Simulated scan of single mutants.
Amino acid sequence: MKKLTEAEINQKVEIKNLLADGLIRERMLALGFTKGAVLEVVRKGPLNDLTLYNVRGTMIALRSEESQLIEI
């Protein structure tokens, strides 16, 4: 499966699975990164470390290590 970090700018993708556990999983679920949610990649930061996503009308930035835990 592809990871969220592989998505391109302006691409809309659907979340298939969360690989995170513990507090990181709870945080992602609270922010709207749930199975079946559609999100758009808005912008990638310098060195592709931070990426801005539009999730259910809210802009949320994730670090690349967090985005690696989301399958699309």
Score class of each variant (00 low, 15 high):
60 I>H: 03
31 L>V: 02
27 R>L: 14
54 N>D: 10
35 K>W: 06
55 V>E: 07
42 V>G: 07
8 E>P: 06
66 E>T: 03
28 M>K: 08
62 L>V: 06
22 G>H: 09
67 S>R: 13
51 T>Y: 04
64 S>N: 12
69 L>T: 00
12 K>L: 10
11 Q>V: 02
53 Y>P: 00
66 E>R: 02
37 A>G: 00
67 S>I: 04
38 V>S: 14
2 K>R: 11
15 I>P: 08
26 E>I: 07
29 L>Q: 13
41 V>N: 06
50 L>G: 12
36 G>T: 01
29 L>N: 11
52 L>F: 04
58 T>M: 07
17 N>E: 08
36 G>E: 02
1 M>K: 10
47 L>V: 13
22 G>Q: 10
67 S>E: 09
55 V>W: 07
24 I>H: 03
65 E>K: 14
58 T>E: 09
65 E>F: 15
53 Y>K: 00
26 E>M: 08
18 L>D: 02
25 R>K: 15
6 E>G: 00
65 E>Q: 14
42 V>Q: 10
69 L>D: 00
35 K>F: 09
20 A>H: 01
67 S>N: 09
47 L>Q: 15
68 Q>D: 13
15 I>Y: 08
13 V>T: 05
16 K>H: 11
63 R>F: 12
18 L>N: 04
55 V>K: 07
2 K>T: 09
40 E>M: 13
59 M>W: 00
23 L>P: 15
25 R>L: 15
65 E>T: 12
14 E>P: 05
13 V>Q: 05
72 I>G: 01
19 L>H: 06
47 L>G: 15
44 K>Q: 09
70 I>F: 01
39 L>W: 02
41 V>H: 06
44 K>I: 08
15 I>F: 08
70 I>L: 03
35 K>A: 09
23 L>T: 12
25 R>Y: 14
58 T>H: 08
2 K>N: 10
37 A>E: 02
64 S>H: 13
27 R>T: 14
68 Q>W: 12
14 E>V: 07
46 P>G: 15
7 A>F: 01
23 L>V: 11
17 N>G: 05
66 E>L: 04
34 T>S: 14
32 G>M: 12
57 G>C: 09
32 G>D: 12
17 N>F: 08
52 L>C: 04
47 L>I: 11
26 E>S: 09
60 I>A: 03
61 A>Q: 06
13 V>R: 04
37 A>W: 01
45 G>S: 13
1 M>T: 10
52 L>I: 05
21 D>P: 06
20 A>Q: 02
72 I>H: 01
25 R>S: 14
13 V>E: 07
64 S>K: 15
58 T>D: 07
4 L>W: 02
35 K>Y: 08
29 L>I: 14
39 L>G: 02
33 F>N: 08
15 I>T: 08
57 G>W: 07
61 A>T: 06
8 E>Y: 11
37 A>V: 03
71 E>H: 02
32 G>C: 13
69 L>V: 01
19 L>T: 04
3 K>H: 00
28 M>R: 08
71 E>R: 04
24 I>K: 03
28 M>H: 10
8 E>D: 10
11 Q>R: 02
65 E>M: 12
6 E>S: 01
